[in-house]
Design a protein around this nucleic acid. Structure first.
Lengths: 112, 112
DNA sequence: CGGAATCCGTTACGATACTG
DNA sequence: CAGTATCGTAACGGATTCCG
């Protein structure tokens, strides 16, 4: 009886949207990639690679694929040699700007 | 020369505050814990354990320690038998409410 | 009740090398 | 240039047991 009440009271924790957010947009690299694309509109693979301190090509391409699947990033490839691929945000991706900005401000104020 | 320009242009990516945020507040469990404490003010270890679907005691105590170290959560222990320990947010912790709320809204709108 | 200790599997991440 | 493929390590996370 009491257990049932507790279950009900704290039900919010299940399928928590914040958790889903963290699982999908969080992680070590995705926010940086998104942030760079907010600042620079469009970037090539190689530019992202150079811009992100310490990332490997493997990780970068993996994270970009994830973000593409999530419809946050658009990939545009030109059939030239040498290859040229551009990445930019979708509208959905751009809509993250305010969230990331306020997180950034909080972080600057509160985290070392 | 050109390299130097690129380095400069994308310097934002180093020590990115959003990355720091994700590393410290992100992850699978921390946001849920914080959110529950926002909703319920004060909770005991056991209540958190029951409220968070699928968490193990090990993870819970580990995450609570992390959050305590970050000064986001306050721990209050009563010297009684059986033991009683309460967790609540610090002011710093409470200041995350707006961030988490807007993340939650975005998540509800944009993530499955 | 509120943990700590242990064991163990899975995933994330990283370094390096290679390719169309 | 824009990636794959391969391999090794480290961190994460879960299950179980034990204890004051």
């Amino acid at each position: 009886m009491a257990e049932k009440l507790i279950e009900k009271k704290y039900q919010q924790a299940k399928e928590c949207p914040i958790t889903i957010f963290m699982e999908q947009i969080g992680g070590k690299w995705k926010p940086v990639i998104i942030w760079l694309l907010i600042l620079n509109e469009v970037m090539r693979f190689n530019e992202l690679d150079k811009a992100i301190n310490g990332i490997s090509q493997k990780m970068l391409s993996q994270q970009l694929k994830d973000l593409e699947r999530l419809k946050i990033v658009k990939r545009k490839s030109y059939p030239v040699i040498p290859p040229k691929v551009e990445y930019r945000l979708t509208e959905k991706g751009k809509s993250l700007k305010e969230n990331l900005t306020s997180i950034m401000e909080w972080s600057n104020k509160n985290l070392k």
